[in-house]
Simulated scan of single mutants.
Amino acid sequence: MDGGVAGVVTELVRAQRAAGFVVTVACPEGGLGQALRELGADVRHWPATRAPGPSLPGEVHRLARVVDEVRPDVLHAHSAKAGLAARLTVRGRIPTVFQPHAWSFEAVGGLTAAVATAWERWGARWTAGVVCVSEAEHLRGLRAGVRANWRVIPNGIDPARFRPAADDAVRAALAPLAGLDPAALLVVCVGRLCRQKGQDVLLEAWPSVLRRVPGARLALVGDGPQERGLRHHASEGVLFAGAVANPVPWYQAADLVVLPSRWEGMALAPLEAMACGRAVVVTDVAGARESLPPGHRAHCLVPAGRPRPLADALTRTLLDPSLRESLGHQGRRHVLTAHDVRYSAEAVADLYRELLDAGSTVAHRAEHTECRERIRS
């Protein structure tokens, strides 16, 4: 309901509505549902929790009612929990596309990871297509033993919405709200405050950055389960901006954007930042690595979970304005070429059409066979 998955769903719905699709979205009440209604989607209230648990049977039952009412041609389930509930609900009776947005078994360990892996293998039989947002996510699924009709469709963003702007003007507008010093160098991290996104590593690295770049500021944009602990360990120069409906001004105000994730499918934040003409520093995990243009990797990739290399990369980039400007220009061109949401939405639509055509062929063959049997009898 928040973070990158919500962003992907919103941009996909926006593009699908513009292309003339009739789109119904089942989700819990909240900001995502309201945003999708404003785009013209039919939003159905589906009470559901983030993780599997005792509420799952009731969630499946409620989702079944929605499916019966809407009678969709294709069902597209985003993220592990929705993928679990949707496939248990439909069990292959409707062409079902599953998009994991990072595999469930990567977020857990031990017995829980084994159970999650076993489910993904089993659930694939009720899945007409699996959409991975990076080649690395696809390979992780294969290595886990998931057998599926695969599509790798990189995440896309709207370059008309995420676009460059004069950072001094944007920062001046944000300053009264966020307490920013318009003259200070600003590092921005946009993401849910959780272990996956690695803000704890970033806060451990920040004092080293501050010693070498006095007066620099770090803004954490987002909320999440680790917020209290992160606040407790935050040092000087760190601002908690909270969740925001529109992160664009924060990207535009930044001198540098950082995403210190431990794992990713393909994060939106680096793509959004590059579309805004900003240099990025990301950890060398598969989904983040694939989001960068090849020329960025020497400057912008750091090992995951290691504060010192992260601090060094942030410091080096902050102290080199010409490098930041060059990386920002290259990043914008890369997004326009490879990550425009229109390309992603059309690739998804092509998959829908393929599944519907295949279903029509199967139905036609079945009808033809039934007709022949009637003639024989």
Rank of each mutant, 00 (worst) to 15 (best):
A41M: 09
A48F: 01
G53K: 12
V70Y: 13
P57M: 03
P54H: 02
R50Y: 07
R44K: 13
H45S: 12
G58L: 01
P57N: 02
S55W: 08
P57E: 01
V67C: 10
E59I: 00
R65H: 10
H45W: 06
H45V: 12
H61R: 12
R62D: 08
D68E: 12
V70G: 12
A51T: 03
E69N: 04
L63M: 07
S55R: 08
P47Y: 00
A48N: 04
S55E: 15
E59T: 02
A64N: 06
S55N: 09
R62E: 06
V43M: 12
R44A: 15
V66G: 04
V70D: 14
D42S: 10
L56V: 09
V70K: 08
P47Q: 03
D42M: 05
T49C: 15
P52Q: 08
V67Q: 10
R65V: 01
W46Y: 08
D42N: 11
G58V: 00
V66L: 04
A41D: 11
P52S: 11
V67K: 07
V43H: 15
E59K: 09
D68A: 15
D68Y: 00
A51G: 03
A48M: 15
P47W: 00
G53H: 09
A51F: 07
L63E: 04
L56C: 03
R50H: 07
V66Q: 04
V70R: 11
W46H: 15
L56E: 10
H45Y: 12
V43L: 14
G58E: 02
V67M: 12
R71D: 07
V67Y: 12
A41W: 08
A64G: 14
P47G: 07
V70E: 15
T49R: 14
D68Q: 09
R50Q: 12
A51V: 06
T49Q: 14
G40V: 05
V70A: 10
R65P: 02
A51W: 06
L63K: 03
W46R: 06
V67S: 09
R71M: 04
V67G: 13
V60T: 07
V70S: 11
R50K: 10
R50N: 03
P54T: 06
D42R: 13
R62H: 06
W46Q: 14
R71A: 14
G40M: 08
R44Y: 03
R65T: 05
V67H: 14
R62N: 05
V66M: 04
P52T: 07
L56S: 11
H45G: 08
A51D: 15
A51P: 01
R44G: 11
V66H: 04
